[in-house]
Design a binder for these strands. Structure first.
Lengths: 108, 108
DNA sequence: ATATTATGACACCATAAGGTATCCTTTTAG
DNA sequence: CTAAAAGGATACCTTATGGTGTCATAATAT
């Protein structure tokens, strides 16, 4: 149950995989359906799906003769959490801006 | 002024680079200082820094004989924005939970 | 002036990554 | 039963990546 941050970040590093995630956010899709959205072979897409599984960003299940993939939003949690550490720096800038504005327009 | 999402995600995909970002969040550091935190050569670290610059996640400036790197928190913005699209799925789950709770304890 | 410090610039390497093509197996429609 | 549909599994290929080593160069301390 470890965070598994690396596999997730690794999975997100490829544009094709990010696009796949966006597609799967709409609905569950078979390998052929996912493949139809790209100009690459089914085998290539299958590899991307496997990387996404390793990153815990999607789930795959076999139904009959097709392989259905579904988005696993929770897998993004570790990533978002890691990034949230840097929120403080944005906040600091907002605070600085707020202070600047207040100082700029002294009310009394 | 484009988002440049890919270079940022690419830069974040490596654990060493993520660690560098964390270090730089503390203070500006020279190449030697950054290198001291890892068990790899200065050249290797320098390459990582270059990738971080391409991802717009840090800034580098030459001061005298040293090269100082500083964190650029704003560079994370495109990444966070992209990820925020998926927040809705978490919210949906929260809503489902809330609904479940409300249903579970009918008040009247 | 002269080491020493801090890098830049390359050349080079092994492995990981992203893709393709081919062949085999499992389901399912006729 | 038989062919088409949907994938799985390999083997292979090219480039990108993450690293190392070596040598040259700009700043600095003595």
């Amino acid at each position: 149950m470890s965070p598994a941050l690396q596999p997730a970040f690794r999975a997100l590093a490829d544009p094709t995989r990010r696009e796949i995630l966006t597609s799967l956010s709409q609905r569950e899709m078979s390998l052929n359906e996912v493949t139809a959205q790209f100009s690459m072979t089914r085998a290539a897409v299958r590899k991307h799906l496997e990387v996404l599984v390793e990153g815990n960003l999607i789930h795959i299940r076999r139904q009959g003769r097709e392989t259905l993939s579904t988005l696993n939003p929770d897998g993004l949690r570790p990533v978002v959490d890691w990034l949230s550490f840097f929120d403080q720096f944005w906040d600091e800038k907002l605070d600085a801006l707020k202070t600047a504005i207040e100082t700029e327009t002294p009310d009394e």
